[in-house]
Computed example of a mutant assay.
Amino acid sequence: MNKFRLKAKQFWWLSGISFLMALLLATFAAWLDLWKNFSGLFRSDAGTNWLMLWETFSSWMWPLWALFAALGYVGILLVRLLRR
């Protein structure tokens, strides 16, 4: 049962790295949407719709963070199981 537990240091490293990866990918996705401006949702004559841009960023950020953290945890478990 102990092989499924993360140490505090491993947990924080995994959280931090997965957060940074999600942050970079979500920022890129939001920037790409703003740059391409599909169907005029993000920019118009009135200016930039920052609320829509934030919603786009958020819709990418939080699921990606959960995904990268889960994949990292599974990766750590696989390395532990294969080493034994």
Rank of each mutant, 00 (worst) to 15 (best):
T27F: 07
A29N: 14
D45M: 12
D45C: 05
Q10H: 09
L51Y: 03
T48H: 13
F11Y: 04
A29H: 14
R5C: 01
W31L: 15
N49I: 05
G47M: 08
A8M: 03
K7I: 03
A46C: 07
N2R: 12
W12N: 00
M1Q: 10
A22C: 04
F28P: 10
K7L: 07
S15N: 07
A8R: 09
L14P: 04
R5S: 03
L14Y: 09
A30V: 11
G40H: 06
W13L: 06
N2K: 14
S44Q: 06
R43L: 13
W13M: 04
M1F: 02
K7R: 12
A26C: 07
F38K: 07
D45K: 14
L51A: 02
D45S: 14
D33V: 10
G16T: 03
A26V: 06
A8W: 05
D33P: 05
W13N: 01
L51R: 07
W13V: 01
A22K: 07
T27H: 09
F11Q: 02
F42W: 13
G47R: 06
G16Y: 02
R43C: 08
S39V: 00
I17K: 05
A46L: 14
L24I: 15
F19W: 05
S44T: 09
S39C: 00
L25Y: 13
A30T: 12
L24R: 12
S44W: 01
W12Y: 08
S18K: 06
W35V: 06
D33Y: 13
W13R: 04
N49F: 11
L41N: 11
W35E: 08
K9L: 12
N49M: 01
W50L: 09
A26H: 10
T48C: 08
Q10R: 03
T48F: 14
F38V: 04
K36T: 07
W35F: 12
N49H: 14
N37E: 06
L23P: 02
L25T: 12
F28A: 13
L6E: 09
K3S: 02
A22F: 09
A30H: 08
S18P: 02
D33Q: 14
G40T: 07
W31Q: 14
W35G: 00
L51S: 00
L24M: 15
L41Q: 11
W31I: 14
N2A: 12
L32P: 05
A46N: 13
M1L: 08
I17R: 03
S39M: 00
A22G: 02
R43E: 12
D33A: 15
K36Y: 08
L20H: 00
F38Y: 03
L23Q: 10
S39Y: 04
A8N: 04
L32F: 15
I17Y: 02
F38C: 00
D33T: 13
G47C: 06
L14D: 01
